[in-house]
């Protein structure tokens, strides 16, 4: 491990100087990483409008994934080219558009794409890419204002309360579909989970079902108090959470290996946790890594 990292760093130094003899021991496998170094730029795809991971704030692209992209590029001695990709109907489509083929309208494939579910079944059917380096464990959570709603009550008791969810998401389907649709008339839909959390803080909703990162980031940004989060699992809820990693092209595993090294270094040094904390989100180790 250590020696490989040393080798990579050596290659980085050489790349700056414009030569690659350090990679001679494994020339075939080194090609994709070497090409990236030759170009001097790491092109990283992130989702458009995916707060708190990657979104535009006052015209500037910000977020946890954006910071992570910059950190990865910097540790590889490369310039970061962070490109936003509009989500298609499924992540499978996004991998095609952003990583292994490119977009219909000319989106240039990226070297890596962040925020890709790390899941064996999902990875098996997307064999044009390698999904690697899980870096977070995401879950959906229910949060509400202390005074307005009992977060730990059986959900059917929320009937008549104002509930917020992102349109066309598992929280949406759960709230409008579960318990025979008992809560369906109480749900207001928002275009993102962050918007739904904001609606709850603004008093337009009593409770919100959103991802943990969405809840924590918005609470942090708004400095909002008086908000509780449900402690027990939601009955008959379909998602136990999922790991998030990143994708590289199937033939770019050398680049993937280098990134995995960097990411594990960032976790052991505490840099990763700090990067999340800057956005108000508690770093959660992926289950796959445990």
């Amino acid at each position: 491990m250590l020696s490989r990292r040393a080798l990579l760093q050596g290659a980085g130094a050489m790349a700056v100087a414009g030569a690659f003899p350090a990679l001679a021991p494994n020339p075939a496998g080194a090609a994709p990483l070497a090409r990236v170094r030759e170009l001097g730029t790491l092109r990283v795809a992130v989702y458009r409008d995916n707060r708190p991971w990657s979104w535009e704030k006052d015209g500037k692209l910000v977020g946890i994934d954006v910071d992570l992209a910059k950190a990865l590029a910097s540790k590889l001695n490369l310039r970061a080219d962070v490109a936003q990709i509009t989500a298609d109907e499924s992540v499978d489509d996004d991998l095609r558009n952003a990583v292994w083929k490119g977009g219909l309208l000319g989106f240039m494939p990226a070297d890596i794409m962040l925020h890709i579910p790390f899941d064996r079944t999902f990875a098996a059917r997307n064999d044009q890419v390698a999904i690697i380096a899980p870096y977070y464990r995401e879950t959906f959570q229910f949060a509400g204002r202390h005074d307005d709603i009992d977060c730990d009550a059986p959900p059917v008791q929320w009937k008549g309360k104002r509930l917020a969810a992102e349109l066309d998401s598992i929280p949406d389907f759960y709230l409008i579909g579960a318990f025979g649709g008992a809560l369906s008339k109480d749900v207001t839909h928002y275009m993102s989970g962050a918007e739904a959390v904001n609606a709850m803080i603004d008093g337009k909703a009593d409770g919100v079902l959103a991802s943990r990162a969405q809840i924590e980031a918005v609470l942090h940004e708004r400095g909002a108090g008086g908000v509780a989060r449900r402690k027990m699992p939601l009955p008959a809820f379909t998602s136990a959470g999922w790991d998030i990693g990143l994708a590289v092209k199937e033939n770019s595993r050398t680049l993937g290996d280098a990134i995995e090294e960097i990411m594990s270094g960032m976790v052991s040094s505490g840099e990763m946790q700090a990067l999340f904390a800057a956005h108000g989100v508690t770093y959660m180790a992926p289950v796959a890594a445990g």
Binding site: Y47, N50, S90, D94, E138, I170, T238
Partner: peptide, 13 residues
């Protein structure tokens, strides 16, 4: 679909 993801998040597709 047993395993589905949309915009990087778990989904029921």
């Amino acid at each position: 679909e047993g395993i589905a993801y949309k915009k990087g998040a778990a989904y029921l597709g």
